[in-house]
Amino acid sequence: MAATPKPYKTKAKVSIVAESALIATYQSLYDNPISLLTSSKKGLSAKAALDFLNLSGFSKEEFQDTFKTNVKTIQNYVSNSSKLDAALSEKLLKSFSLFDKGIEIFGSAKTFHQWLNMPAYGLGNQIPFDLMDTITGISLIEEELIRIEYGDLA
């Protein structure tokens, strides 16, 4: 029985141009390991979490399950101009990086989101989205994307 993908949900339709602009906003913060580490330790503005939510198409529940934080809490942080802690900042930056690669390969965040919710052969037929709650899981998904990019599906 084939798994059906979870629907791509977003409040506003994010265009491919807007996706690129949003990714570009954060790209310098994760483009190398030192930038990633430094940016994570400084903490991202809470707005980054809402930006990722808009980019990814995750439902509030998916976001909360993946990042182990409540969207309402993030919204309160934004209104208080608070920064996120290092662990959440790192996971968000790694997720932005993952979506950057996914958009490059699949053409849009929507198509990548659909792929994330289908079993992946190179991940032992696990659903990639289910691995996104850990840094190791995100790394495994990145490796699978690189295999797809180079046509190494065996």
Rank of each mutant, 00 (worst) to 15 (best):
A2D: 12
T4P: 01
K6M: 08
P7Y: 11
K11P: 09
A12V: 06
K13G: 01
V14R: 03
V14A: 12
V14N: 12
V14K: 01
V14M: 14
S15G: 04
V17Q: 12
S20Q: 09
A21S: 11
A21M: 11
A21G: 03
I23Y: 01
I23Q: 04
Y26P: 12
Q27C: 05
S28W: 00
L29K: 13
L29R: 09
Y30C: 01
D31Y: 00
P33N: 09
P33K: 02
S35K: 10
S35D: 10
S35E: 05
L36H: 05
K41V: 05
S45V: 11
A46E: 02
A46D: 01
A49L: 05
A49S: 14
A49W: 06
A49E: 03
D51C: 03
D51R: 00
F52L: 03
N54I: 00
N54G: 07
L55S: 14
S56N: 06
S59F: 07
S59I: 06
S59K: 00
K60H: 15
K60Q: 14
E61L: 13
F63N: 05
F63Y: 15
Q64R: 07
T66M: 08
T66K: 02
F67G: 04
K68G: 01
K68P: 09
K68D: 08
K68T: 10
T69K: 08
N70D: 15
N70C: 07
V71N: 00
Q75M: 13
N76P: 05
Y77S: 14
V78W: 02
S79R: 09
N80L: 07
K83Q: 08
D85L: 07
A86W: 11
E90D: 09
K91H: 11
K91F: 10
K91V: 05
L92T: 15
L92Q: 08
K94M: 10
K94A: 11
K94D: 08
S95I: 04
F96K: 00
S97F: 01
F99G: 03
D100V: 13
K101D: 15
I103T: 09
E104Q: 14
I105C: 08
F106P: 06
S108P: 07
K110G: 04
K110T: 11
K110H: 09
T111P: 05
T111S: 11
F112S: 01
Q114L: 12
W115I: 06
L116D: 13
N117I: 03
M118S: 12
A120F: 14
G122N: 12
L123T: 14
L123R: 08
G124F: 15
G124A: 07
N125C: 01
I127V: 15
P128T: 03
P128F: 11
L131K: 11
D133Q: 14
G137S: 01
G137H: 03
I138C: 01
S139L: 05
S139F: 15
L140T: 12
L140S: 06
I141Q: 02
E142V: 09
E144L: 06
I146N: 10
I146P: 04
I146D: 15
R147P: 02
E149Y: 04
Y150F: 13
Y150G: 12
Y150W: 05
D152H: 01
